[in-house]
Structure formats: C-alpha cells, structure tokens
Write a protein that binds this DNA or RNA. Structure first.
Lengths: 258, 258
DNA sequence: GCAAAAGTGTTTTATATACACCCATGA
DNA sequence: TCATGGGTGTATATAAAACACTTTTGC
C-alpha cells in the first residue's frame, strides 16, 4: 500500500476484504549489539512513532493474519509469534476516527459511514526475530523505521506504549517458563551471547557460572567442538539449542530461575 | 432478552448498539463441594452446552463489557475477571452463520446482510466467583444451566472446549504467581478448605503440612482465634487472607511451588 | 472409647546463590 | 607481555520434599 490510489482503494473497499473494528499490532523484538530492540514505524501525517500493524482478512484465521502482517512488514516467515493481550480499554480504543483530520493529513476522504471510521480494538502479538534477517517495508502511512532499544522507548502513538509494556512484561514472565532465546539468536552462539541476551531481557545481572550451569543442566543447550575467533581474546566455544529438549520445554514449560 | 420480540429486535437492530465480529465468552469458575466447577448454559435449538456470552457495546471499554456480561448472567459485581486469550483460529471462528438454520431453530429471520451473519471472534475471560452468590439468569437462547465439574466437561458447542481448556491452563499457571484462592473462598475459611481448593485447581495432592507452612510463611493468610464446629470431629481454626500481602502478591507476583 | 478429621515439627534432599582465579588470544 | 574477555568448581544458604503421630470432637 504505497501509492495514493492504493490507499484510496483500501479506505473505500477495504471492508470487503478486512474485518472492521479489529487490528493486529505486533511488537517485534529483535536482538542486536547486546540490546533488545523493537521495531517502530514513523507515521507520516501523525508525525510520531508507533508499532507496525494490519487488519484481519474476512476469512483468515487470526494467527495466520498475525503471521501475514509480520511477513508483509518484515519479510520474515516462520517466526515465533505469540498473542499476549487484546486491547480495548484505553481512550484511543474507544475513539472514532475523525474523517476531517484524516482528510487533512492524508488527502483521502473517509466518510462517517466508512469501515475505518469506528473504534478499532487491537489484538497484541509479540514476535521474536533475528534482527539481521529483517527487511522492513514501509508504506504510504509509514515512511521511516527504527529499531529502538527497549530501555529508550519514546512516547508512542495510539495506545502503543501500553502494548509495548505488556509485551515486555509477558516476555519477561515467559523467559522463566520457556526457552525464549532460540529465536533471537543465530543457530550457533556463544555462552556470553546468550548470557547477555538473558541479562538484557530480564534487565538484571546473572552470574555467568550459574547461568551456564543451569542451561546445560536443563539440557537446553549443548557445547560444540567449534570456537569462534573474536579478535585479541580467548575464543569462546559455540553452542546450539538441543532441539528435542527445547521443544519439550516449549510445550510443557519449565519452572526455574536464572 | 427473553421474549421473541426482544430477540427479533436484537437481531435486526443490535448492530446499532454492539460491535459486530466480536463477542466475549467468560469461563466462570466456582468452587463448591470440593469441586472446581464452571457455569454452562444449555442452548435451546442447538441442543447442547456452551459458555455464557455477550457482545461489546459500541462505546464500551472491553473490560467493562466483560464485567457487564458477567453481571447480566450471574448478578455478580466486582468479580475477579481476567482476559486470557482471543480466539479466532478454529473452524467455528471462521464460519459465517447460516440464516436458514437460524430461522429454523429460533424462528427469527436473519438475512445475509445481518450484523450477526458474519464470523465472530471471541475474547476469552475467566472469572473466579463465590458459587453461593451466583444467580444465573437464562434467556431466550439458553434455558437451562449447570455447574459442571471441570473434570467432567462434556463436548461443548462452538469452540468452547478450547476456551475452557485454555482458561484452566491459565488458572493453573497463575496459581503459582498469584494468590488465586481469595475470590473462590468465603472471607473466613479453614486450612483444609483452602488446601482442598489448591489440590482441586492443580489436580494433584499437596502435603498438608508443607502447604500450610508455605501460605503462612508467605504471609498470605493468618490464623484467627475462632474455630468452626464441624460435627463429630476436631474443630478447625478459621483463617483469612492478609489483605496487604495479598494485594502485593497480586501486583508483583510470587514465584514458588505448593 | 471410637471414628473421623485437624493439627503440627524435623530430617533429608535439591536447588539457588555466592564467590575468584586461571586461560587464551592478537596486538 | 599485556590487556581483554572467556572459562570453570566449590562451598554455603535457602527452599522443597518427605514423612507419622497426637489431638479434638460428637456420638
């Protein structure tokens, strides 16, 4: 949806393809440079940052819609994606859109009987993605993007700060029950890498000896024979996740600390 | 919505008051007779059991809608109510309604352009209620109800078995992080009562000595001077929740086992 | 006094935490 | 050889689990 014609068609005829009153706004977590980041888009017209988002097709399963939207925005498929909350309480989620304002900002006339006019609830999903594989695609409404450190999230449009906060809280709770790291790290990784990832997600320091002990004791990761050369320092060993144990832990959950 | 006239008005004019495509289906847990039960309604016409449910008013906050629906169905206010999942994947949630079938079952003509015709996603909430205070109100569609032991849930209408399973799983996970018992027990209760409640929710035996030790050590409950007479046996002491500790635990969460 | 349910303490085991030194590498 | 980051083991403290007998009550 990049040209004005496409947007006009979307506004006028979108109701034939999409469900009104409902959107999906994914919080996309990527890990890079020892920082946990989320993908933000800059809204043209509104002049602010927000989450990427999209609508649900009329005959499309909800989770499939979430995957499609993510694919459209980032090019990624087979991503870890988890529903965490449906938002319908904040003032923004009660609000009808203002057709005049919409016209002024985007030059598209949306009448009061338009499918986009009324309030829209949002189903929140969060995704864990390999930062390096993401190809962000912007559109008519959103012309810039940034990966923003979760420690420095600015004031966002709509109710998106609430969504980000809740996604983070859910991620931090999940990490105690599920082996989250898998999707945020490359296939082979070093102990310091996964260690820093967990510290970053939880926002606190973890003893490196106890941490390694725990992951290995749980059988979640295994040491490989290979090492990685990292400049003028000792070469760390590479590890990878144990697929079977990992899948079990995903299904059955684990209870422990790090 | 008890008379045919009311139903006809709801079918024809409901779109003015309610959001289409979205419903709320609460899983209502009650505890009675040492059993964890959920409230099921019998659908007239469909001849099967399902969860109570309702629609969201056009300008009503989502969580307020959940409370209202619960109030309408059970008469209860100020109930512990928690959103746990939004359902939009199962074949039923993709399906359009069949107007002919609807006419045959209920005698109300719903055309293909009716607001109820298209697919409806469902926001799942679960409630914890004091069984003894519930006053179930049935309506035109639902003429009987039952409190059904969670161990004996029959095959339900729509995708409601999925909702019940997920609500139960969420409740069992929550019990490790939050002091769930408060809303399912009367103000004053005995140790054996809360002990059996936790065993019932978790579906496994808990050592009574360790269990009591834990709850008291966490400061969640306190022993009162009173005892309850229970026939030809030793009188158990009464306990009650410590409100401050309880509120803290609700907010900050607790990590432990029972 | 008997049947039924309530109450309680200690020991063992497992898990979590705290802590410090040596090693490998490239410049 | 030095600066930097990687790697590893043990001892202590805390928490969980296992376990059995005595008390109270009404009949």
């Amino acid at each position: 949806m990049n040209s004005l014609e496409e947007v006009e068609d979307f506004v006028r005829n979108g109701h034939r393809h999409y469900l009104p009153h409902l959107s999906i706004d994914p919080v996309i977590f990527g890990y890079h440079d020892q920082q946990l980041k989320i993908l933000l888009l800059n809204w043209k017209g509104l002049n602010g940052w927000g989450l990427p988002g999209g609508f649900i097709q009329r005959r499309e399963p909800l989770s499939q819609a979430a995957h499609r939207i993510l694919q459209e925005r980032t090019g990624l498929e087979n991503v870890f994606l988890q529903q965490f909350h449906t938002f319908g309480d904040s003032p923004y989620r009660l609000q009808e859109r203002n057709p005049r304002e919409f016209f002024e900002k985007y030059g598209v006339d949306m009448g009061e009987d338009n499918w986009l006019f009324e309030r829209t609830l949002s189903v929140g999903y969060f995704a864990l993605v390999d930062y390096s594989k993401v190809n962000v695609r912007t559109d008519f409404f959103t012309q810039n993007y940034q990966w923003c450190d979760v420690k420095e999230i600015p004031s966002l449009l709509f109710d998106h700060n609430e969504a980000v906060d809740k996604a983070l809280a859910t991620l931090r709770l999940q990490i105690y029950h599920q082996p989250i790291g898998y999707k945020l790290l490359p296939e082979k990784f070093t102990l310091p890498e996964i260690h820093t990832l967990y510290e970053t997600i939880l926002g606190k320091e973890l003893d490196p000896r106890n941490f390694a002990k725990k992951l290995v004791a749980l059988g979640l990761i295994k040491k490989l024979a290979e090492q990685r050369a990292i400049g003028p320092h000792r070469s760390p060993y590479l590890y990878q996740f144990e697929k079977e144990t990992y899948e079990d832990a995903l299904k059955q959950g684990i209870v422990h600390t790090y």
